[in-house]
Write a protein that binds this DNA or RNA. Sequence first.
DNA 1: TATTGTTATACTCTATAACTATA
DNA 2: TATAGTTATAGAGTATAACAATA
Lengths: 149, 149
Amino acid sequence: MRPGKNGKLALGPLPELVGYNLRKAQVAVFQSFQTAVAPHDITPGQFGVLIMIRENEGLSQSDLGTAVGIDRSTMVAVIDRLESRGLVVRAPSPNDRRSYALRLSPEGQSLMDDLIPRVQAHDQGMVKDLSPEEQVQFIDFLRRVSRAK
Amino acid sequence: MRPGKNGKLALGPLPELVGYNLRKAQVAVFQSFQTAVAPHDITPGQFGVLIMIRENEGLSQSDLGTAVGIDRSTMVAVIDRLESRGLVVRAPSPNDRRSYALRLSPEGQSLMDDLIPRVQAHDQGMVKDLSPEEQVQFIDFLRRVSRAK
DNA sequence: TATTGTTATACTCTATAACTATA
DNA sequence: TATAGTTATAGAGTATAACAATA
């Protein structure tokens, strides 16, 4: 019986590392998110992009990319996918003919109207084992770690 | 002046979501990790794989994949890379001729001897703005979220 | 000169399906 | 029959470099 066939493997110093636990929590949330919004087939990243377009109608692909931290060349395919699914519209920019003014289509808008409360409920479910005070603390800790460049 | 050119964009409900803050913290840790161990060119994922091999010498690729949550077909290229860099050895398994017994090479061992304290120091740095009590709490919260399937 | 969107290209990470050697 | 490693293939996500159109 070789190691790992039945029992657990040794993890060494990993369980004590913040980074390891952060990664595991993030994977858990990501997978759970997929299940929660499964009928709509939207990833957390796509949800973020759709939120940004919804909240900043008319923004350009470049500015969107800067905001979510991906290159403008990468953004092309991201918008291609959302546009081909009929969720996002590339409208001509009124004052700059090089760029697009991105906005949600009516389908995209109603998708988000449905999705936002669903995502918020899912998010609450991820911290259901934490008390309200602990939840506040947890988000505060996460923000402080993000800032600790 | 279109939105986003100078000021920040609106983020809508994102900043209140645990998942969003978790993702941001994880990205920050990942990038910082890369910088901290830059001379060795090791990703957090590779570090995890090397730790598992170090702590469970002789394990197979399949068992390793199961432990770190990736498919055995994906593990092939992961080990290929570490083997071609001279860090990991595919030794013949003594009792099953289908599988390999993975172990660190001497180079891999000394890399890890150097890397482990470096990673631990980096990890501490990520939570340097949290008090010792808060750090304990933080890891506890992360584990509870991981379990909240 | 600089910027926007795009394409070509490349690399990582990931999976499924099918193959082979073995169990 | 089942499992271990592999390959072929595919898709998402990421980047850099270069290009045309426009600023």
